[in-house]
Structures are given as structure tokens and as C-alpha cells.
Design a protein around this nucleic acid. Structure first.
Lengths: 120, 120
DNA sequence: ATACAATACTTAGTAAAACAAAGTATCAGA
DNA sequence: TCTGATACTTTGTTTTACTAAGTATTGTAT
């Protein structure tokens, strides 16, 4: 089935933003680390490409859910190290996460309710 | 929060097609009836507009998941009655539904797994 | 009878998000 | 030296839900 791929992709819409927020709420991190952490946390099921993750981070920052600071592992910015942008969740971000988690759970329960019927 | 609306909308991506398939698998129906049935089955949470549902039906038919026949409640086509297009699930549609349900459940479990962590 | 709501289908255009693909650059190990 | 992992960016494509408008019939309340 080729439609399988397409279906799985659509399911992620909106959810990825929530999950990235969830990971950052646990611990600040830079983009690439988030890809690795999400892959690990999902048992390999969610393996984002950079072209997917970074736009999510830019969006979250623009919405005021996270903030970023350029960093370098040894404290010297841009000297012999790849510059990394470290993201931290804001209070607004934590509020959004709580709200989205609530909405997600309600939605998932609703879907199960419809799926689990024998009548229409 | 204005983003709440947007978030809830994104969650539906892909899922609506599966749910419509589920309703039709239980019993053939025409478009408008599906809107009413989905609203009832979801406790009012999923209230589709015609502009949302009908394109889903056209898509499902094009994919071979459902078939349609024009009908009239008293058997006389187009005579004194609003013509209705009745949809029925095909074998391919039932297979797609089973597969999508499996993928959805796996995905939902995966999301919960990431949400429910205290580490990253 | 007349207006209005509900039923029933259609279509054009918009917005949002995941992804593919390409590019840039550093660093570690074979 | 060359490859792969790390790290960030941007452009364009695809899919899907939704808005908004249109057409037409049926039933109900004024």
C-alpha cells in the first residue's frame, strides 16, 4: 500500500510541535539533539529530518513558546566549534503544552470512541 | 489562545478519512447522513461542514475504498425528491480501514509514550 | 402563502504542516 | 583524505481541513 506513507504523515500534523515542546520542557536542547532524543523517546518511530524539525522550532519561537540562545560547548562562540542554538521553554510554552496535551487526549479518546462502534 | 483552533484542526488530518470509512463500514450512507452520524458518534466533537466531508468522499471513491450510486428514497430517481448519493465500502476500503486503524493506534501509543516521560 | 430552517450536493480558494532536497560548515575516526 | 556524524538553513511540493459561496428540495412555523 502506497497510501500508508501518506496516512502516517498526516497523523503527525500538529502533534510534532507538541512533542518537541514536551521534550524541551523536560530539558533545554539544541535542534539536532532534539531529533536524536525524539527518535529515542519514540522507539525509533519518529525520526524527523532537519527540514521538518527546524521550521517547527522557528514557529515555536515566533509564537513565544520557546526562546533560543547561540551557544558553544566550551563557551567560545564560533571558535573551532559548530555553533548551536539552544532552546528553552517559556511559561507560555508550558501553558501551551498543557493545553495541547489536554486537547490531544480528548481528541484521541474521541477517535477511539468512533472507531469502537458497531453501529453508525 | 487562538492557536487552540489551529491545533485542533491539524489533529484531524488523516483521521477524518479513517472515521468516515469506519462509519460506512458499519452501514452504507449518503453524505449528509454521515455528517449527522459522525457528530452523534463523537458526542458533538466532530461536526464537519459539507465542504470538508464531500471532498473526503470523492477522494475515498477515487482511491477505490468506496463506491457510490445515486438513489432516491422511494426508488424514483430525481422525481420530487432530492437526489442522494449513497456510499458503500469496498473490500479494499475495509482493508485500508483495518490498516489505518492499526497505524493510528500505534501512533497514538507512541505519542503517549513521549508525553508521559519525565526525562527527555 | 410565505419565509425560513433543514436537508443534500458541489466547487473554488486558502492556510497549515510535514517532507524532500539541496546547500553550508565543523569535527571525529578509519 | 575521505567518509560519516553533527549542526543549521532554505526552497518548493504535497496533502488536507476549512471557508465561503452557490444550487435545489423539503418541511415547518408565522
Amino acid at each position: 500500500m502506497p497510501g500508508e506513507e501518506r496516512f502516517a504523515r498526516q497523523l503527525k500534523k500538529g502533534v510534532l510541535e507538541m512533542l518537541v515542546l514536551r521534550l524541551l520542557a523536560a530539558q533545554p536542547a539544541h535542534g539536532y539533539a532534539l531529533i536524536v532524543r525524539l527518535r529515542a523517546a519514540s522507539g525509533g518511530q519518529l525520526d524527523l529530518k532537519e527540514g521538518t524539525l527546524y521550521p517547527i522550532l522557528y514557529r515555536l519561537e515566533e509564537e513565544g513558546c520557546i526562546t533560543s540562545t547561540w551557544d558553544s560547548p566550551d563557551g567560545r562562540a564560533g571558535v573551532g566549534k559548530v555553533p548551536r542554538r539552544v532552546y528553552t521553554v517559556t511559561d507560555a510554552g508550558r501553558a501551551a503544552l498543557a493545553q495541547q496535551t489536554e486537547i490531544w487526549r480528548q481528541f484521541a479518546a474521541c477517535v477511539e470512541q468512533v472507531l469502537g462502534r458497531d453501529d453508525g
